[in-house]
Amino acid sequence: MRNTARWATTLALTATAVCGPLTGAALAGPAGAPASLYAPSALVLTLGRGDSAAVATPQRAVTLSCAPTASGTHPAAALACAELRGAGGDLEALTARDDVSCTKEYDPVVVTVDGVWQGKRVSYERTFGNECVKNSYGMSVFTF
Results as ranks from 00 to 15, higher is better:
residue 68 P to H: 00
residue 34 P to K: 11
residue 20 G to S: 05
residue 2 R to N: 09
residue 60 R to T: 04
residue 42 A to K: 07
residue 6 R to M: 09
residue 20 G to F: 04
residue 4 T to E: 11
residue 94 L to K: 14
residue 139 M to R: 15
residue 20 G to M: 04
residue 137 Y to K: 15
residue 119 G to V: 04
residue 124 Y to E: 10
residue 86 G to F: 08
residue 95 T to D: 13
residue 92 E to V: 12
residue 131 E to I: 09
residue 121 R to N: 09
residue 106 Y to K: 03
residue 82 A to M: 05
residue 103 T to V: 02
residue 71 S to E: 07
residue 102 C to T: 00
residue 28 A to V: 01
residue 39 A to C: 04
residue 10 T to Y: 10
residue 124 Y to G: 14
residue 18 V to R: 08
residue 81 C to N: 02
residue 27 L to S: 11
residue 109 V to R: 02
residue 44 V to L: 10
residue 81 C to P: 01
residue 132 C to N: 07
residue 97 R to T: 04
residue 23 T to I: 11
residue 104 K to A: 13
residue 76 A to Q: 10
residue 68 P to M: 00
residue 120 K to A: 15
residue 38 Y to D: 14
residue 46 T to N: 05
residue 71 S to C: 01
residue 17 A to M: 07
residue 61 A to P: 00
residue 77 A to F: 04
residue 106 Y to M: 01
residue 103 T to G: 10
residue 53 A to E: 12
residue 36 S to I: 06
residue 124 Y to N: 11
residue 7 W to C: 01
residue 85 R to A: 15
residue 79 L to T: 14
residue 17 A to C: 06
residue 86 G to S: 14
residue 22 L to F: 02
residue 135 N to H: 15
residue 115 G to I: 09
residue 105 E to M: 02
residue 72 G to D: 01
residue 47 L to N: 02
residue 88 G to V: 13
residue 6 R to C: 03
residue 77 A to Q: 06
residue 97 R to Q: 07
residue 103 T to Q: 01
residue 36 S to H: 06
residue 14 T to V: 05
residue 94 L to E: 12
residue 55 V to C: 02
residue 115 G to N: 10
residue 14 T to I: 00
residue 67 A to Q: 08
residue 94 L to G: 14
residue 123 S to Q: 15
residue 68 P to L: 00
residue 110 V to N: 01
residue 96 A to W: 01
residue 16 T to W: 10
residue 97 R to P: 06
residue 142 F to Y: 15
residue 43 L to D: 09
residue 99 D to Q: 05
residue 60 R to S: 06
residue 29 G to C: 03
residue 113 V to I: 10
residue 105 E to F: 01
residue 5 A to T: 06
residue 111 V to Y: 03
residue 125 E to G: 13
residue 39 A to D: 13
residue 52 S to W: 05
residue 112 T to I: 03
residue 23 T to Q: 11
residue 130 N to L: 06
residue 67 A to G: 02
residue 109 V to D: 00
residue 81 C to H: 01
residue 138 G to I: 13
residue 76 A to C: 00
residue 140 S to D: 08
residue 80 A to R: 07
residue 93 A to V: 12
residue 5 A to N: 05
residue 31 A to S: 13
residue 22 L to C: 04
residue 10 T to C: 07
residue 23 T to F: 13
residue 41 S to F: 01
residue 43 L to P: 11
residue 33 A to D: 09
residue 94 L to A: 14
residue 3 N to T: 09
residue 103 T to F: 03
residue 14 T to L: 07
residue 29 G to Y: 07
residue 95 T to I: 14
residue 96 A to P: 06
residue 21 P to Y: 00
residue 64 L to P: 00
residue 102 C to L: 03
residue 137 Y to A: 15
residue 36 S to P: 07
residue 110 V to P: 03
residue 40 P to R: 03
residue 104 K to V: 08
residue 94 L to H: 13
residue 79 L to W: 04
residue 98 D to K: 08
residue 133 V to K: 08
residue 55 V to E: 08
residue 113 V to K: 04
residue 129 G to K: 13
residue 82 A to P: 04
residue 91 L to Y: 12
residue 28 A to D: 07
residue 102 C to F: 02
residue 27 L to Q: 11
residue 13 L to Q: 13
residue 102 C to N: 03
residue 87 A to F: 14
residue 37 L to S: 12
residue 11 L to K: 04
residue 68 P to G: 00
residue 101 S to G: 05
residue 96 A to N: 03
residue 70 A to V: 00
residue 101 S to W: 03
residue 129 G to W: 06
residue 133 V to E: 14
residue 94 L to D: 14
residue 122 V to C: 10
